[in-house]
């Protein structure tokens, strides 16, 4: 945005009154819209737009495990693949798994795992696919949010939906839902995912430095963000059913 040729660090990331580089207030989220059940062939799916992020999540399963020897006799095997499309970033992203996407696959898997009743489906696998079509900071959290909806859409028993949000530190400010520039040049970045109904935190990472007080404050802010995301998730899951209901009632 600052240079035509290369991205450079903007001079001011956050103004003195707390206005952020993209015009948001410190505790303001980017716009989010979610749609559930977008893929016909998957057992469950969700499409999420979160700021500039575009994420497609699909769930297959429970199904037979291939290769067979990976099957667990007492519970379902949960596998997750996080993948960025070559066209998802500014420069072409070299396709295929790399260090970062392997790590994020693991992180997303482990953020969703505590929510799933895996012991109900022994000897099977539940495969989660998270495809990033366009990335704009906070894709892991967007991926978790979308994948948990895809799991619910697939009818897989869940302790609750997993909602995610990030908090960052920019200068002296703690900001909710880190944007692209803040992610690149901010001072700290904390992604958090939790099962809102049972208040269990399933993912908490921290990159950068914060004081203990700041960290506690950041955690509270992130939970506030998650609560907001959770409401949107619930609304998205209900929407198709309500739409059909309205349609049928309109006919009568």
């Amino acid at each position: 945005m600052n240079s035509i040729f290369t991205e450079e660090k903007p001079e001011i990331l956050i103004q003195e009154d707390g206005t952020r580089i993209d015009g948001r207030k410190p505790d303001e989220m980017r716009p989010i819209s979610i749609e559930v059940g977008v893929l016909r062939k998957a057992n469950g799916s969700a499409y999420l737009e979160w700021g500039g992020n575009r994420v497609l999540a699909a769930v297959y399963g429970p199904r037979e495990v291939h290769p067979r020897h990976l099957a667990l006799p007492d519970r379902a095997l949960i596998r997750c693949r996080y993948n960025m499309a070559p066209f998802s970033t500014e420069e072409r992203k070299r396709p295929g798994p790399d260090r970062r996407s392997i790590e994020l696959s693991k992180v997303i898997r482990e953020a969703l795992l505590p929510a799933v009743f895996v012991e109900r489906f022994p000897n099977t696998s539940i495969d989660i696919f998270v495809e990033i079509l366009r990335s704009d900071a906070g894709t892991r959290i967007a991926g978790i949010t979308a994948a948990s909806l895809a799991l619910a859409d697939a009818g897989i028993p869940l302790r609750g939906l997993v909602s995610g949000c990030t908090v960052g530190k920019v200068g002296d400010w703690l900001v909710l839902d880190v944007g692209h520039e803040e992610d690149m040049w901010g001072d700290a970045d904390i992604p958090l995912a939790m099962i809102m109904e049972t208040k269990e935190i399933t993912l908490l990472q921290s990159d950068g430095t914060l004081t203990p007080e700041e960290f506690r404050e950041a955690l509270d802010l992130a939970i506030k963000g998650c609560t907001y995301v959770y409401e949107l998730q619930k609304e998205a899951l209900r929407r198709p059913y309500i739409a059909v209901e309205k349609e049928v009632k309109g006919e009568e």
Partner: peptide, 22 residues
């Protein structure tokens, strides 16, 4: 509830009839 479904309440019992799932 552990899934998307409809609540069924009868004689001190609560259950959910699933709307999705294999």
């Amino acid at each position: 509830s552990y899934m998307v479904g409809l609540v069924e309440i009868s004689n001190e019992r609560v259950g959910v009839i699933p709307l999705r799932g294999g």
